[in-house]
Simulated assay, not measured.
Amino acid sequence: MKKIVLIISLLTVITSFEIPCSAYELTIKQPPKIEQSHLAENSKEIIYRDMLISLLVPYMQKEINNYYKEYLTELPIIFPYSVDIVNVERQGGSGYLIRLEVIAHPFVGSINTVGDDRMIIETGAFGSVQIKKFEHIKSYPLPWNWQHIIKKPY
């Protein structure tokens, strides 16, 4: 009986001591919030940008096909959401000659981006569209299940 009382007393004494514990707080700074008007999906600026890119995609797709047909058996595609506008400027100060610089991210399958391609596009008053410059900037490796479409490294 004395042993049981001694063991219980000893356990009570041991568990009654506080064990020091350190905790650290991780603070992550969030980037400042962008004005909500810039993020509104139905703002006129976003709609105009989407409309412009949608109208230019066929011209850009033709240039992408011309470049990648030498390297891939299946041609990559672009959608308006896979094109970034880098710069837009009016040529000559006034008029309807507009020069647009874009970077397209063509892909095969659902999400396999094959590269980054820069294009300089000029549009005119009567609907003229010309790709003035096409430059392949970067290539991305394809996953193992898409290796069969590679003709030669690009």
Rank of each mutant, 00 (worst) to 15 (best):
Q91G: 00
V114T: 02
L100V: 05
E89T: 10
G93W: 08
I120K: 02
Y81H: 15
T113N: 11
Y96F: 04
D117A: 03
I85W: 06
N112S: 09
Q91T: 01
Y96T: 01
F107K: 15
G92V: 12
G93Y: 07
L100H: 03
P106M: 03
N87K: 03
V88H: 05
H105S: 14
G115F: 07
A104L: 13
D116S: 06
N87D: 07
I85C: 09
R90L: 10
L100D: 00
N87R: 06
A104F: 06
R99I: 03
D116H: 11
M119W: 00
L100S: 02
S94C: 01
V83T: 10
V83P: 10
P106L: 05
V83K: 11
V83Q: 10
N112C: 11
N112W: 08
I103N: 06
R118Y: 05
G115A: 15
I111D: 14
R90C: 06
D116T: 01
D117N: 08
Y81D: 15
D116M: 08
G93P: 09
N112A: 10
R90F: 00
D84G: 04
I111F: 08
I111K: 13
I103A: 04
Y96Q: 05
I85F: 06
R90M: 03
E89N: 11
P106H: 02
V88T: 13
I120E: 04
L97M: 04
S110I: 15
V88R: 08
G95N: 10
S94E: 06
R90E: 06
G92M: 12
A104T: 15
S94W: 05
S94D: 04
G115C: 09
I120L: 11
R90D: 03
G92F: 07
L97G: 01
E101S: 02
V108M: 13
I98K: 10
E89I: 10
I85P: 09
V108A: 14
H105K: 15
D117I: 00
G115H: 09
F107E: 06
I103M: 06
G93K: 07
V108C: 13
V102C: 08
Q91V: 05
R99F: 01
G109V: 10
I111R: 12
D117Q: 07
S94P: 00
V102R: 07
G93A: 07
I120P: 00
V83C: 12
G109S: 13
I121M: 02
V88S: 08
Y96K: 03
A104Y: 05
R118P: 00
Y96N: 05
V88C: 06
G93N: 12
L100Q: 02
V86S: 08
